[in-house]
Design a protein around this nucleic acid. Structure first.
Lengths: 188, 188
DNA sequence: CAATTTATTTAACAAATGATAAAAAATGAA
DNA sequence: TTCATTTTTTATCATTTGTTAAATAAATTG
């Protein structure tokens, strides 16, 4: 649980008592490659932390699946809509390799938020951090070209590039696979 | 202060004591049309709530200003990067009409977060809500065409369409003004 | 290993959007 | 109002990206 424990500390450092309380609410699950952890059809009642493995969030469209997010060890799997508003979310999330996850239920988390100030502030910092990441994605999409976004991916997430097929990468970048292939060949 | 007071309640209902404490930290400012409330150059130490008026966030690029957000009464003016990470943000924010704002300083807010559980949870809900809005923007940009985004704007924010010039709208939609003009003429 | 499936690249054409320039319309100031 | 400025629309051409289909390469399975 070390990866996740570090991740939790990184978001907001909890006093030992609260940290322990928080961790005690987590439950380990081992999932096989291809498992759909979160389904767009359903309201999801857990937040998952990735201890080991890699995950992909995607939306089903008329033109097939389109990837909206990749997560590696230390990443958090959740549907914001599901978890914050109790609605079915936009996305489904699958693991692309056999993975080890730890999850905490919505109701446990709510209870902790309502009783423990440090944990409420942890939740706030968590939301703020995810907000910054989402804003970053938005800015990239709005202000950078597909080529630049691809180069950023090479630079900042080489692991993903190596472990994930290009069709998923292309839709993540907001372009077709053909277009990505053109970008790749232009770069040589 | 009624618009803002309602907005605060909408995010998360505070007990009367905390609500009053929270409100007591706000300060009213009246700003003239064209005032730059938040500058991309600086670290901004306030969050502003719009009681009356309309605002626009934009980034300076090599091709001129590009709008990233519009806010009306009840909206919140802040740079996430500035406020959450104490860094200069991406955007500058100006008011497009004479406006009435209420602001609370970063340090006051931090203090309230650290001492009052309900306010910490208010802050969490606020971040969660802004996260959902940002995610929505991202999804729109990624999954909908410029034409659809324009139609959504007509449907959901007719006020903005009426009060803001089309150049700003176009860059908000992520297209050129020429392209927006084409979309508008195709619709007749 | 060969056979089959899946993933990736390439090519040709269509559609959408950008860039630039000019015209038309709207706005604001004297 | 009239003139000057700003905003919006229109037109033309270049560029980018999408679409479809086929070819190549890689991975998987029996």
């Amino acid at each position: 649980m070390t990866v996740i424990s570090n991740k939790i500390d990184e978001i907001f450092l909890l006093p030992p008592t609260e940290k322990q309380l928080f961790l005690s609410r987590f439950e380990r699950i081992d999932v096989l490659k291809g498992t759909i952890v979160v389904s767009a059809e359903k309201i999801e009642r857990y937040v998952y932390f990735i201890e080991e493995g890699i995950a992909r969030a995607f939306r089903e469209t008329d033109k097939g699946q389109r990837t909206i997010w990749f997560g590696e060890a230390g990443g958090v799997i959740l549907s914001f809509l599901s978890f914050f508003k109790n609605q079915p979310g936009y996305e489904s999330i699958e693991v692309l390799e056999d993975s080890v996850l730890y999850r905490i239920s919505s109701s446990h988390l709510q209870e902790l938020y309502n009783l423990h100030l440090p944990i409420a502030n942890w939740g706030r910092k968590f939301a703020e951090q995810e907000l910054l990441l989402t804003e970053q994605r938005f800015m990239d999409l709005q202000f950078r070209t597909a080529t630049e976004r691809y180069e950023d991916l090479i630079k900042h997430s080489p692991t993903i590039l190596k472990r994930v097929q290009l069709g998923h990468i292309a839709s993540y970048l907001g372009i077709t696979q053909v277009s990505l292939s053109r970008i790749r060949s232009a770069k040589k």
